[in-house]
Amino acid sequence: MWRSIASNALTLLIVALVAMAGAIAWGKGQYTAQGPLESAICLRVQPGSTMTRVSRNLQDQGAVSSGSIFRIGAEYTDKMNQLKAGAFLVPEKSSMAEITDIITRGGASTCGTEVVYRVGVTRTDVLVRELDPATQSYSTVAEFYPDVTGNEATEIPAKYTEVREASDTRFRISVAEGTTVWRVIESLKGVDFITGSVEVDEMPAEGTLAPDSYEVKVGSDVDELIARMTAAQDKRLAEIWDTRADDLPISTPEEALILASIIEKETGIPEERREVASVFVNRLNQGMRLQTDPTVVYGVSNGVGFLGRGLRQSELQSDSPYNTYVIPALPPGPIANPGLASLEAAVNPDETPYIFFVADGTGGHAFAVTLADHNANVAKWRQIEAERAN
C-alpha cells in the first residue's frame, strides 16, 4: 500500500515538474516572442514609477499581452529594479524582452517632447516639437523668439512653460553653419535651461565653435557646452586636414579654417561648396585677390551684429586686413564658424578652371573662366535684381 502511495506521489510530482517546466518554457516564449503592438508608441515613465505600474500601462496600450508575464520576465532577468524615467519609443511588434531593455538601459529619452534652441546667422528662435511615434517625425507645436541681442523677442507660449518643467522633455541647442562666435555667445545668454555665465573675459577664437546640434540636460553648465563645441571643431579640423589634397595653396589647418569660413559664407548650396572652393584655390594659386564680399563685411562689423546693408565703396577700398579686394591673400582669421562640408571643400576642392562666380538668381551661382563671361553673368544678375526691385 505504502509503495503504491509513494509511486502515485512520485508520478504526480513528475507530472507537476513537467507542467511547471512547460509553463516556464511557455512564459519565456511569450516574453521573447513578437509583441502585439500594431504601431509604435511613446511610453512615458515618470520618476518614481514602478515596473508594476509600467506593465499595466503597457497592457492598457496593447503593447504586451500580459502584464504579469512582463513583470515575471523583468524579475527573472534581474531588471525589475532598473527602471529609468523618461519617454521611450517602443517600436511596433516589440517583444516584452525588447521593451524591458528599452526602459531599463538608461540614456536620453527617445521620443515625446523636445525643445530646440536654434542659433541662426541673423536670429535665434526656440521650437517645441512633438514626435509622432507612428511616423517617427517631429512637428512644431510652439515657437518663440527669446530676448537676445539681434532678436525682436516674442511672448513665451504656455506650451513651453509646461514642457520646460516636464521630466521627460529633451533639450537641444542647435548652432547653424556660418554663425559668428559673437552670435553664438550672445544667443547662449538667452537659454534658460542651462546655467553658468557667458560673460567671458576672452571670446573663443572666431571659427572655433562647431556648428551642430548639442543635446543638453537642464541645469548643465554653459561653459562645458562651449568647451564641447570647441573640442568638436578641433577634432573635425584635425581629421579633415589629414585628408587634404596635394598642392593646395594653404599650408596649415588654421588657413584651411579661414578658407572654409569664406566658402561657408559664399554659398548655402551643399553641392556648390567644392566648386566655390575651386575658385578661391585657383585665385590663390594664380596670385589673384579673392575679392569676396563676406570678408569685407566681417572687417566692417568685426563679426558683431548683422550689417544689414550693402557695402559702401569706401569699405571696398579700405585698408582693412579683411578687405580681400585689396590684400592678395587670405584674411588673417576666419569670418564665421564653418560646418563640416565647408571644411571638407576647403581641403578637397573640385578641379575646375573657374576664377569667377556670381549669384544666378536661383540661390546658386554662375561660374566663369574669363572676365568677359563673368561680366555677362553679372549683367544677368543685375537684371534679375532690377526685376525683383520693381
Rank of each mutant, 00 (worst) to 15 (best):
S261M: 03
V369E: 15
T179V: 14
A256H: 00
K93T: 03
S68V: 15
S220D: 13
G363C: 09
A277C: 11
G287S: 13
G22L: 10
G207R: 00
S251G: 12
T113N: 04
F367S: 01
V116N: 13
I269F: 01
N348P: 01
C42S: 14
A85Q: 14
M203H: 02
V279H: 02
I173A: 04
A341P: 01
E387F: 08
I258L: 09
A238P: 04
V64P: 07
R388F: 07
K79C: 11
L127R: 14
M203A: 11
Y322M: 07
E130D: 15
H374R: 04
E385Q: 15
P211Y: 01
K159D: 00
L330W: 00
L340A: 12
F357Q: 02
L237W: 05
L284P: 06
G22Q: 08
T11D: 07
V181H: 00
Q136E: 13
I103H: 00
V15H: 08
L127A: 12
L343W: 00
S4L: 15
G196C: 06
I335M: 06
A87C: 15
T149R: 12
Y160R: 01
L343A: 04
Y325N: 09
L343S: 05
V184F: 08
R382E: 14
P332C: 11
S320T: 11
T122W: 09
T208V: 12
R118W: 12
A176W: 05
T161F: 05
V281Y: 06
A231H: 05
D293G: 11
Y76G: 03
R382W: 10
C42Q: 06
Y322W: 14
L225I: 10
Q383S: 15
L209C: 07
G106H: 04
I24A: 15
S39R: 11
N57F: 09
E165Q: 14
G48R: 10
N151W: 08
L316C: 11
T324C: 10
I226G: 04
E385R: 14
I327V: 15
M96T: 09
F357A: 01
M96K: 02
S167G: 04
E162W: 06
T50W: 09
L17T: 15
A231L: 10
G299E: 09
E275K: 09
G112F: 04
P253R: 01
A386S: 14
A346H: 03
V191S: 07
L43T: 03
F70V: 12
G363N: 08
D212E: 13
N348W: 00
